[in-house]
């Protein structure tokens, strides 16, 4: 097999893993916006906090315990933020919400630097997921394959939650018409809080999974967070399928960009976003701004 094809396949799998991870982060962001009309700019920082918590918990317990506990921890934090902060200022419109969430983001960023320091922390994947996987002539890190499988599993879980449970039905109904759902005797604010927790839980999962994939460092929120925001805007605010397509697109663009256009790679993401928005301001599949 010629080296070009080999590079392409390797980069494709890498881009797919990165794109699916981005989707986990972006999905929470996008669905919270879709349902509650809140863009949580602290989302990326919560994701980073989960990565750090995952790092510490892996040291104390093990990776699987971290994967279970750290997302629950940040989900609780998210629920507190929603219940005691965002809910109070929601009637004032979007600008105070954006400013508040960026303030929370700054606090989390500095908190993380304060507790864990600014150096990069490496985390080894658990025994069973380390090493290389050989498929034909391709040798590929098991962990990246795990990321792909894990993300797809979470997506299936999300689909089941949305379309097969009562909670999912209420969430979808409240997205369409929260007032009517409230009139039916359902505690919509509670649903909002739980849903916000669910969105941050997804970011937490992605945070723990990303820790052994990239390293854990304070720039993580900026690096992945911005890509996630681009994914959400590109896919259309509130659109899940749009976010999925955009996440895969950005993931592939990133991994191929770094391979073939190393100097311009970071510009490609924002360039693509600017192009899409200038043609279709609502994003790929979005219906509103």
């Amino acid at each position: 097999m010629d080296p070009m094809t080999f590079i392409c396949v390797t980069q494709f799998v890498h881009g797919l893993a990165y794109g699916l991870l981005l989707f986990l982060v972006a999905a929470g962001l996008s669905m919270i916006f879709g349902m509650m009309d809140i863009l949580n700019l602290a989302h990326a920082y919560i994701f980073m906090l989960a990565a750090y918590l995952g790092y510490t918990m892996t040291g104390l317990l093990n990776f699987w315990a971290a994967l279970l506990l750290a997302p629950i921890g940040v989900a609780l934090l998210g629920m507190l933020i929603e219940r005691f902060m965002l809910r109070k200022i929601h009637p004032l419109g979007h600008i105070p919400e954006l400013v508040l969430t960026i303030g929370i983001g700054l606090i989390l960023l500095e908190f993380v630097k304060w507790i864990w320091g600014t150096q990069s922390l490496m985390l080894q994947p658990p025994e069973i997921l380390s090493g290389l996987l050989s498929i034909g002539v391709f040798r590929y890190p098991v962990y990246r394959v795990f990321i792909i499988g894990f993300s797809i599993a979470v997506m299936i879980l999300m689909g089941l939650l949305f379309y097969k449970t009562r909670f999912g039905t209420i969430v979808r109904a409240a997205t369409a018409d929260a007032g009517m759902v409230g009139a039916l005797g359902i505690n919509v604010p509670l649903v909002y809080t739980l849903f916000f927790g669910f969105g941050t839980w997804l970011a937490g999962l992605a945070g723990v999974v990303v820790a052994p994939f990239l390293s854990v460092f304070p720039g993580l929120a900026d690096q992945i967070g911005f890509d996630a925001f681009v994914v959400v805007v590109l896919g259309g605010l509130g659109s899940m399928s749009g976010a999925f397509i955009a996440a895969i697109l950005i993931g592939l663009l990133n991994s191929f960009g770094i391979q073939f256009l190393p100097t311009l790679a970071p510009l490609l993401t924002f360039g693509l976003m600017a192009v899409v928005l200038s043609i279709k301001p609502t994003g790929l599949l979005g219906e509103r701004q």
């Binding site: 954006l98 925001f229 976003m273």
Partner: peptide, 13 residues
């Protein structure tokens, strides 16, 4: 072409 939240995000980008 954008306003509100999308405006904030586009300027961020």
């Amino acid at each position: 072409r954008v306003r509100d939240t999308a405006f904030a995000l586009l300027t961020l980008a």
